[in-house]
């Protein structure tokens, strides 16, 4: 991720002096990291580029608060995750899940899951992701964040702790409850399909 020619200390010095060139370099360097997080937790009605810009303005405005005790990537990740979480919270209306609103691909995927005990074919990954995103949209922001990190992005508990600042016990309890809610939604959706 980090460019070999990029000198983070010099860049941070520049940012503290409000140097535009340093800011541009900083944004270019860390854009992939921020975009990855924003894409994973993007609210339905938000544009990813707008949210990325909000994250960068927040980072640059608070650069004086960066102590240097943790890697800059961790600090950036935490700001990006919290910004996404706030954006998800602002999106207060969560859609109701209905079988009739699912696409043909999604319904056939659910049928396949119900009838075939084997793992899904790798070609179904995109449809699965799409279906999971639909289910996640009906969850609360923190539940959604946790399921995405733990089950879709492959984060460990420590990674989640780094990114969110929550302690491990809280993460475990919240993850369990989030999983239960997701299961309930999945069950309800399947029941609608059987009618």
């Amino acid at each position: 991720m980090a460019d070999a020619g990029f000198d983070i200390d010099a860049c941070l010095d520049g940012l503290r002096r409000h140097d535009e060139r340093a800011a541009t370099d900083f944004v270019r360097e860390h854009y992939p990291l921020v975009l990855k997080i924003v894409r994973s937790h993007l609210p339905r009605r938000a544009a990813e580029e707008d949210l990325c810009q909000v994250v960068f303005i927040k980072i640059l405005s608070n650069i004086d608060q960066y102590s240097g005790r943790v890697p800059i990537a961790h600090w950036i990740s935490r700001i990006a995750v919290n910004t996404c979480l706030n954006a998800l919270k602002a999106e207060s209306v969560r859609p109701e899940l209905r079988w009739a609103d699912l696409s043909t691909e999604q319904t056939s995927l659910l049928d396949q899951l119900a009838t075939n005990p084997e793992d899904l074919h790798p070609d179904s990954a995109a449809s699965s992701r799409d279906l999971v995103e639909t289910l996640l949209a009906a969850l609360k922001p923190k539940d959604r964040l946790l399921i995405t990190m733990l089950h879709l992005e492959g984060y460990s508990m420590d990674d989640v702790k780094q990114a969110t600042g929550w302690n491990i016990a809280t993460i475990k309890v919240r993850a369990f409850r989030a999983r239960q809610k997701l299961k309930q939604l999945f069950q309800e959706l399947n029941n609608q399909g059987k009618i």
């Binding site: 995927l109 899951l113 899904l120 992701r129 089950h151 879709l152 997701l182 999945f186």
Partner: peptide, 15 residues
């Protein structure tokens, strides 16, 4: 349901 959800999440995680 658990098993189906696990398989769905595993598959989604590959994307």
């Amino acid at each position: 349901t658990d098993s189906s959800l696990d398989r769905l999440l595993r598959s989604a995680g590959q994307c």
